[in-house]
Design a protein around this nucleic acid. Structure first.
Lengths: 335, 335
DNA sequence: CTGTTAGCGCTTTCAA
DNA sequence: TTGAAAGCGCTAACAG
């Protein structure tokens, strides 16, 4: 591989001049610039990005941590981030945290040790306090899908409470009063907020939150299966089931159908997230849209603005969920 | 951030010695090593990986290119690669090629310019010839889900022809003779091979390949929808529909049901890939398992062995698909 | 507008 | 077993 030195020799200029044309420094005459460009292409020269990083103290790399690499939710999130960043020549280093505190901390550590210019992370298990400490460090960190007190400027998040409220309100307005709820892992902020919204909608309509109609799932299909099974075993009546994400809704549907339910007549089901597959499961899932791809773009823009000093970027820290009405809920009012 | 120099001063040894303990060089006395380690932890020292890369000409980074970051298929693939590599302190730089030749070439270029030690790429649009040229370059490149003549040692692939054969054979053995087929984009090797297997099974059972029962899809839900719609419009009878991947199968199911079909009684559907969701769509999809996560692990091992010279790793270049029998196909023989 | 000259923080001979 | 010193390829003052 040719180096900058060889280019400078061939072009008959100094190292500094070559460096200037590489970096589009305007203080180079057109003639000189041309000479250098010819020399570069003649040698098939490409700058060594590692050397550039060392000298400039800027790696053009952004570390991303998600809980899992697979899964429709994280896929959309990463796609949004990568597309935005790649357009500006930045690259993403990706790792996983598996929703476990130790692994999340280790993942962040790993990315920092990689000299990333900034981090965009989706942490689920690390507490706010530790996040405050991490944010003190040299590497700027931004948080996806989380709202941390005092760190609002570092967060891009969805109003999950409103989403949970919307979901339950919708079900109630269709005439349901016996409503079961499968939540996600209790320690996850998303679970907590969605549940809070659920309770608010219930209260607003003078409905009680019934522990017997409540199950703690895992945000995966399994959680939906196990949840509905446990709920059914309690022999408490419910005409609608709200799941805190689409994957659990899908699992619950599968289980219900395996056990003789006709959907949605026998049981109405509401999801959350609007993952791509939600419109392809049967019956088509009514759910709450989570604009995670857009949020990924926004997180990337946040980095572009704060770390790379791009101008004229407007940042939106908080996103609103919206209702996606499909076929999985029976309307008891018009029926 | 403390540098190696400060550590050496505090420990009262030379730079070289500190470097040795960082790199676990055995030629350091225990006493000296301890002194250095104490100094390191006292200063909170962590090596600058960029400087290490420049000096050692090894970045410990592997470039990954997939067509899309979202989607269950690529998610599983990346998860396999990342898990394996991360266990050895390597990190992955991920970018996308969007199944377009220009973008794929640009993506590879991008990763090479990032000084990756090796690349693991899933290319769909670049032809074999260009891949041969790319493989001549300085950066070792390995190909996922592809088998290129003369580059077998650089490939990890699935026997797609066998998969296509298995799929069609299964459908035929359940008594179906009027079988429609929705393929993926014609230029993609996966499509071609699966189709070839389909034709082989047909021929083996003295069935004709009928152009009227054939549609070229896009490997997405849309392709399944549009495909079955077009097929139905031709008014040619078919009792079974084979889709070249699960996403198209899912799209076809949704469309069929929207148009009054009872599944699987009115139409049997076969998928391919066994993505996670295939067991949660209704009816549960019979499909061909594509061990893409395992293949991701293997691609990573290939890099570990060839690039990082790990010993005692056995590489398997070719993987076999297997049948996953579920509920989406009606057995006409026993019925 | 162009060139000189120090580094960036680490690895790696080579000698001792 | 340890240290000295020469780079790795580039950027960024500074001087001219």
């Amino acid at each position: 591989m040719a180096t900058i030195y060889e280019v400078s020799k061939l072009a008959g200029v100094s190292l500094a001049t070559v460096s200037r044309v590489i970096n589009n420094n305007p203080r180079v005459s057109d003639k000189t610039r041309q000479k250098v460009e010819i020399a570069m292409s003649e040698l098939g020269y490409r700058p060594n990005s590692i050397a550039q990083s060392l000298a400039s103290n800027c790696t053009n790399s952004i570390g991303i941590m998600v809980s899992e690499l697979h899964g429709p939710f994280f896929g959309q999130m990463m796609a949004g981030i990568e597309a935005e960043l790649r357009a500006f020549g930045k690259h993403v280093i990706i790792t996983t945290g598996h929703s476990e505190q130790d692994k999340e901390k280790e993942g962040i550590d790993f990315l920092i040790s990689r000299n990333c210019d900034a981090l965009i992370v989706h942490v689920e298990a690390i507490c706010d306090e530790d996040l405050h400490k991490l944010t003190q460090g040299d590497t700027p960190i931004y948080y996806m899908s989380r709202s941390i007190e005092g760190l609002e400027e570092h967060c891009i998040h969805l109003n999950n409470e409103l989403g949970g409220y919307l979901a339950t309100k919708t079900v109630i307005e269709q005439g349901h009063t016996d409503i079961a709820y499968i939540t996600g892992p209790e320690f996850k902020p998303d679970s907590q907020d969605r549940l809070a919204g659920h309770k608010r909608a219930l209260a607003e309509h003078n409905l009680n939150f019934d522990k017997d109609l409540y199950y703690i799932g895992d945000f995966k299909e399994t959680g939906g299966r196990d949840g509905i099974k446990a709920l059914l075993a309690k022999k408490v009546n419910f005409s609608a089931l709200i799941c805190a994400n689409d994957e659990m809704a899908s699992g619950a549907m599968t289980y219900a159908r395996e056990h003789g339910f006709i959907l949605p007549q026998d049981l109405s089901i509401m999801g959350f997230d609007n993952i791509i597959f939600s419109r392809h499961i049967y019956p088509k899932l009514t759910t709450i849209d989570n604009p995670v791809n857009e949020m990924g773009h926004m997180a990337a823009k946040l980095v572009l603005k704060n770390v790379y000093k791009h101008k004229n970027i407007t940042i939106k820290h908080s996103f609103e969920p919206s209702l996606i009405l499909r076929d999985s809920i029976t309307n008891l009012v018009t029926a």
